[in-house]
Amino acid sequence: MSAILSLRGISKNFGAVAALTDVSLDVAAGQVVAVVGDNGAGKSTLVKVLSGVHSPSAGTITFAGAEVTIGSPAEAHTLGIATVFQDLALCENLDVVENLFLGRELRRGRLDEVAMETRSWELLRELSAKIPTVRIPVASLSGGQRQTVAIARSLLGDPKVIILDEPTAALGVEQTAEVLNLIERLRDRGLGVIMISHNMEDVRAVADRIAVLRLGRDNGVFDAAEVSNETLIAAITGATDNVVTRRASRRESKADV
């Protein structure tokens, strides 16, 4: 599969701190790539580089075959890279329709509320979203509903790549399942999905490939169907002998006895 989005040698420094060093990543259309790593591994920085919030200190980004620079969130939108941040970036005082179309309202001189509302319903229905009404402020929605609104919003610009930053972090069991279904629907639509996550179970449930970051560097890309949990954890923590494996082996040896 040819990659729609490729990063090569991306570095990002904040003063003396190197948040990312020489990171490479490929995403193809219709593929879910999970980016995992411990706290401080550089996952969020990578998201911000891709969404145009930070520009990289070094490295190249290739999108749909051409080398691009992503100078601002608006440029990322225009290119076709949509990002759903962990904090979702919704305006609580605005209703669902207003949030969905924020920054790209239809007919900006005289807002086409009817068309926006119908389009919102279509979109939410496609995603099988459970939202009772689109004319209430986002403040009154649950965590899962907000996540759905944020993902639906990112689809409006007809993106080719969608980046989800910890999409299941704050959700309950059922809502997590709904969001994972949603991610599969995105893949079926032919979108490239980059999913940042802490949760191994969720990652293995939907991802095709898993890229591991450690201390701002690449630490291996694995095929999600083949890789074992031990290998992943070793890549994340940087050693085969660590707190997690020691704990696991202790339990195994107990079970043997």
Partner: peptide
């Protein structure tokens, strides 16, 4: 939008 959440508004372009 800016009055509600500046950061969200900025990210919405």
């Amino acid at each position: 939008a800016i009055g509600g959440n500046v950061e969200a508004a900025r990210r919405a372009g």
